[in-house]
Amino acid sequence: MDLLREALVWLADGGNWAGPTGITARLGEHLMVTAIVVALACLLAMPIGVWAGHRGRGGDLIVGIAGAARALPTLGLLTLAALALGIGLVAPVVALVVLAIPPVLNAAYSGIATVQPSVTGAARAVGMSSRQVLAQVQLPLATPVLLGGVRSATLQVIATATLAAYTSNTGLGRYIFAGLKANDYPLLIAGSLLVVVVALVVDALFAVAQRFSVRHR
């Protein structure tokens, strides 16, 4: 518990928040990388998933990809990307996008595909075009699920971005690896606390957003 107190002391020290390797800068990097990766993953996966769900095709393939991707070791992907692309920011971003795509793809597909057929059928029956059914019925009803997919992708990325500090000089994970290297336990615990707080706060924000996205009921 002494270690925990020392970690808190370290966190409370304003000097540790300033400068290019200060907490503020690392936190900014972490959130920035996360935002870029999630945005890229959504841009790539969302249209494909939504389209597949709307047409009711390719579901097995998408569920299969999502399942297989779960088996991919994140550390392996990060180190492989680093060896292939160098230790800059590009490598972890590529690896993280690869990891973030499956949950988004899966959620987009199943969110749209699981809208009740009776509902879409009724929408068609009153004369909506396929596009209108998608835009006015399926997408609004699927929003909570879509958000759920983005939520798990984001949490995945925040977690893996921490690990990415192993191959790249970025993010809050740096404190953990620096602490590990120097056997500086207060430092690595402080870094861990920061990551946990960031993850829980982001998760809570998504929970609120998801609640507001449920319009019906």
């Binding site: 977690a159 690990l163 606390l193 993850a199």
Partner: peptide
């Protein structure tokens, strides 16, 4: 609900403490 949000690397550091 909360554990799945917590990165494993952080837990590897904190559980020993």
């Amino acid at each position: 609900n909360s554990l799945y949000a917590v990165p494993s690397l952080a837990l590897f550091m904190m559980v020993p403490v």
